[in-house]
């Protein structure tokens, strides 16, 4: 069994590329905005996109990633049954 943390070993050998750090910051920023937008209740992708200020394809990608990791869940379809709504998975 290993005893010391191996992360400290690789940190001496490898540098994290700038774009990887930026990607993390971007995700955290967008995640926060999406979750904030959903605090007001269930919303569709176009509604979330305009609240967050992101394109609809990017919104869908981030939203589905949040769905996959249990932050968001699918709600009812909208009136026209064109779009599903999404809501926070965890109650505040």
């Amino acid at each position: 069994m290993k005893k010391e943390r191996t992360i400290d070993v690789i940190k001496k050998e490898r540098k994290v590329p700038e774009e990887v750090r930026e990607n993390l910051k971007k995700f955290n920023r967008i995640k926060k905005k999406i979750l904030e937008a959903l605090q007001e209740g269930p919303r569709t992708v176009p509604e979330i996109a305009s609240a967050v200020g992101l394109s609809t394809p990017d919104t869908l990608w981030y939203l589905m990633t949040l769905l996959k990791y249990g932050e968001v869940k699918t709600g009812e379809p909208d009136e026209m049954e064109e779009y599903f709504t999404y809501q926070l998975a965890k109650k505040k």
């Binding site: 943390r5 191996t6 992360i7 400290d8 070993v9 690789i10 940190k11 490898r14 994290v16 993390l24």
Partner: peptide
């Protein structure tokens, strides 16, 4: 996926099996 890893070490910290090995 080491090319996208930020080397935060959280995975190693939480792994109950001690399976993460960055070496």
């Amino acid at each position: 996926d080491i090319d996208h890893c930020v080397l935060c070490g959280l995975c190693e910290k939480v792994c109950p099996a001690g399976a993460i090995d960055f070496t």
